[in-house]
Design a protein around this nucleic acid. Sequence first.
DNA 1: TCAAAAGTGTTTGCTATACACCCATGA
DNA 2: TCATGGGTGTATAGCAAACACTTTTGA
Lengths: 230, 230
Amino acid sequence: MSTPDGTVRKYCYAYPHPAVTADVVLFTLRESELQLLLIRRGGEPFAGSWALPGGFLEIDEDLERCAQRELEEETGIAGVYLEQLYTFGTPGRDPRERVISVAYYALAPSDGLVLRPASDAADVRWFPIGQLPPLAFDHAEIIRLAHQRLVAKLDYSTIAFQFLPETFTLSQLQAVYETLLDAELDKRNFRKWARALDQIEETGELRRRGSHRPARVYRLKNRERVDYLK
Amino acid sequence: MSTPDGTVRKYCYAYPHPAVTADVVLFTLRESELQLLLIRRGGEPFAGSWALPGGFLEIDEDLERCAQRELEEETGIAGVYLEQLYTFGTPGRDPRERVISVAYYALAPSDGLVLRPASDAADVRWFPIGQLPPLAFDHAEIIRLAHQRLVAKLDYSTIAFQFLPETFTLSQLQAVYETLLDAELDKRNFRKWARALDQIEETGELRRRGSHRPARVYRLKNRERVDYLK
DNA sequence: TCAAAAGTGTTTGCTATACACCCATGA
DNA sequence: TCATGGGTGTATAGCAAACACTTTTGA
């Protein structure tokens, strides 16, 4: 059984099956802005458009594993915090065939990320969330929902810590919240709040950066976890 | 192209495709308990086991529409509040083939629900959440997550109102929260809080039930919506 | 007249906010 | 010595929790 383009269609079912993909909205903070990673599509459909990293689920692969793999294959980034967002399946969202897309969102500290564009992605770039290019498929909607979820989770979880490296200062932490909330926060109140969370501990070190008093260095008590706040 | 059981496999793809289903956790409050709807499976696998209502996505059907359709076909219940929960896709969760299940949860007022078991569901029944039978597939896990989500949303949304009929008294509303939170609430504080939400309005009617002072009747300002609270 | 649920305010404690100055360093 | 960001406490307002009695009805 084959098709006009010569592809062999050897996986057959009694009922039609949709394709399943995993797509990833990877956020980071760069240049005091919330940014996210897009790839420029090499092939049709939407060739030349920007899109979320993602791709088809392999038949024996876990969904989250697929999201991680596609992210790594297309951008070279691995080991970031990843959470399922929502599943998009409106008929017609992909012109080729029925595609169910399980969307994930991911958070990463900006430093130490090295982009390595893969062969099937013509280009990989960070975009500020306020200056996104036109996007393929329904990816603009996926990004909207991911951003909304991220902001909502700031209130009641430790998700924001995922933007920070292993050790950080309270000023860095405050800058993360200020960027994400797009608001200025009072330094004393912020520090009181941050310490009351019982989520961070001092490393004992001091960090010297520039000609001013050195900053105390903190670390998250349990990295690898996102906790709920009271 | 056919199989040992004689099924014709006429839908063919160049790469293997998983099947996609929608499953529904339908909650209601009955007899002062949180209960959910299960069907007894007629066919293999897990024949005779209890399971969530749900079934395979049709190729041109929206995901949420599929959840509604399967719920109605298997239980006769339609028009309830429905929200996507999570997508489950661990390989091996269905012994027949790879199945990606998009889980939904639904909430309904108990009164006015009439169960109409369909032909392919041997039986349909409500179960208290604390007394569930052994379940097919990974449905126990789906239910755990749905319950967790429901309780979490009580805090910051008007989701609990979906358990109430169109008009209700404040005592009924309080009973809903007390059941879901499994805690007693102070009557005066609860009423102060409920009115401050700015989500309900008096109908002007009084409801007489039994030999005591009649209760004022309220209605949700915008039914069909679940709002976020401040 | 009694039982049963509906209805109603005030006090208290806690959490969130507003606000300004000194400290330690490198250049 | 000066510019820079790091670091600290107190007073006030707003929200949440505790708490007990009166009202209206049907039987």
